[in-house]
Amino acid sequence: MDKLEMKLIYIFMALLGGVGLSIQAAIINSRLSAGMGNQPIVATLICFTIGGLCLLIFAFSQADWHSVHNNIALQPWWRWIGGILGAGIVFSSIFLAPQLGVANTMFLFIIGQLVAVMVIDGLGLIQMPVRSIYWWKFVSMTIMCVGLILFMFSGRWFK
Score class of each variant (00 low, 15 high):
I27Q: 13
N29L: 08
N29D: 11
R31M: 07
L32R: 13
S33I: 02
A34W: 09
G37P: 03
N38L: 04
Q39R: 14
Q39C: 09
P40G: 12
P40C: 10
I41L: 14
A43E: 08
T44S: 15
T44W: 07
F48W: 12
T49Q: 11
I50Q: 08
I50F: 04
G51K: 08
L53S: 10
C54Y: 02
L56S: 15
I57V: 08
I57G: 07
A59Q: 02
S61A: 10
Q62R: 15
Q62G: 07
Q62S: 14
D64I: 00
W65V: 13
H66Q: 15
H66L: 14
S67P: 06
V68I: 10
V68M: 02
H69S: 06
N70W: 00
N70H: 00
N71L: 12
A73D: 04
A73Q: 05
L74K: 15
L74G: 15
Q75L: 08
P76I: 02
P76V: 02
W77S: 00
W78K: 00
R79W: 01
W80S: 09
G83M: 03
I84P: 11
I84C: 11
I84S: 11
L85Q: 05
L85C: 12
L85H: 03
G86D: 07
A87D: 10
A87M: 14
A87R: 12
I89T: 03
V90Y: 00
V90N: 05
F91P: 02
F91V: 03
S92R: 12
S92Q: 13
S93H: 11
S93D: 07
S93V: 09
F95M: 13
F95T: 08
L96I: 01
A97Q: 06
A97F: 00
P98V: 02
L100T: 03
L100P: 01
V102S: 13
A103I: 03
N104K: 13
F109H: 02
I110E: 03
I110H: 08
I110P: 00
I111V: 08
I111P: 04
Q113K: 12
L114F: 15
V115S: 10
V115P: 03
